[in-house]
Amino acid sequence: MDLSRTSTLAPVADVVAQLGECPRWDERRGVLWWVDIVAPALHALTPASGDVRTLSMDEDIGCFALTEDGGFIAGMRSGVWLLDGEGRKVRQLHALGEDTATHRFNDGRCDTAGRFWVSTVDEAKACGDASLYCVSGAQGEAMARIDTGFMTGNGLAFSPDGRWLYYSDTPRYKVYRRAFDAATGNVGPRETWLTFTPTETDRARPDGAAVDAEGCYWSALYEGGRVVRISPQGKVLAEYALPVQCPTMCAFGGDDLRTLYVTTARAGRPADELARQPHAGRLFAMHVDVPGLPEPRSALRTTTD
């Protein structure tokens, strides 16, 4: 498919994920990586050929960032791990520190200094004690809790000028932001930036996100069947519909970072909805005019000499 001619979101890979998440463009390999959290795997699409490579995981994988040496730093159910380029566990950096029967790492990415910011989810939505952490240090030895009290930590992204850290609590319909110092990693107080209002027919909730080169925040609205582009001032500028109910996250890719990729979910959805929406769980893409930003990598080594 020539995505430069496609201005609507269309499926681009044959893989059907149960809970697709965390799309990441790998400019060195020319592939788009994404995860299936609950049928745990890392998938890699080569857009030029349409081929998909799958690396199976031995536990739920919520998110990851690329490393400089070709591996991954990943937020999994049991903790934060370094994985090699084949998805094999190299070493655990940090255990979760929350009840892994009901909690896991969920959403995360690196900042421009290579720190790994990662949030958790309270799957039962019973305690509301999920948290946001930052993993830093030359060996990834430090993990600081930045915030807590969420049901589902999501939507992590940084403004292009390094002034803002964004994240969301999906079930509470809120996107937060904090003043951010990219040089030090210090953050200011949490403030509510956006609140979405559900209706009887539209339970759109802010899930995973990405920021483009103009500083606009792109949010996948779970149960809303669309992705929205939001200005730095908090105004919804555009909406892009999908033929499925549950988009989960978006990312920019392609050589010019003008391809928007969107992951979707089918796990836990009603049978009649899935019958009407056979593409649920697929990866979607379309061309956009404003490019995204290169995805920062971690400098932590995932290979052994």
Rank of each mutant, 00 (worst) to 15 (best):
T100L: 07
A285T: 08
A179H: 01
R229S: 02
L283K: 07
M286R: 08
A13Q: 09
E123Y: 14
V135E: 04
E295Y: 06
S131C: 15
E59R: 06
G108W: 03
C127I: 02
L3W: 08
C110L: 11
F105M: 13
T67R: 06
R276M: 12
G188S: 10
P206D: 09
A285P: 04
G225Q: 10
T152W: 02
T46W: 04
N154H: 09
V121N: 00
C127T: 13
Y133H: 15
S49M: 12
K89A: 15
L300G: 03
A265E: 04
D36S: 11
T303Y: 09
G281K: 05
S119W: 01
A17W: 01
S7R: 15
V211D: 01
R145S: 11
T54D: 06
A144R: 15
L55N: 02
V80R: 03
D147A: 15
T184I: 04
T100K: 11
I73S: 00
V31N: 02
Y166P: 00
V90Y: 07
L194H: 02
A210N: 09
F158T: 02
D147M: 11
R203S: 12
R5N: 14
I230R: 02
L194Y: 00
D129H: 14
D129A: 15
G79R: 03
V80F: 05
A113K: 13
V90N: 08
V228R: 00
Y222C: 08
H94Q: 13
F150G: 01
C63Y: 05
T112G: 08
P296F: 06
G215S: 10
E214N: 11
T197W: 07
I61A: 13
A275P: 05
Y176T: 00
A95S: 14
A13W: 04
A130V: 08
D181C: 11
L194T: 00
D256I: 07
W164D: 00
R177T: 00
V262D: 04
C110W: 11
W164V: 00
A209S: 15
L93A: 03
K174D: 12
L257K: 03
R53Y: 04
A39Y: 02
G188Q: 09
M143I: 09
H279Q: 15
R297F: 04
S168Y: 01
A265Y: 06
L300R: 04
V38L: 13
E123C: 09
E295M: 08
E239A: 14
A130N: 07
Y217W: 13
D2N: 15
A101E: 14
N106C: 10
Y222R: 03
Y261M: 03
S7W: 09
L237F: 08
T67E: 01
V175S: 01
G137I: 12
F116G: 01
E68P: 07
D2S: 12
R172V: 06
A182G: 07
G254Y: 08
L32C: 12
I146S: 01
M76N: 08
A280H: 05
S168D: 02
E21M: 05
R269C: 05
C127S: 14
P294C: 09
N186C: 09
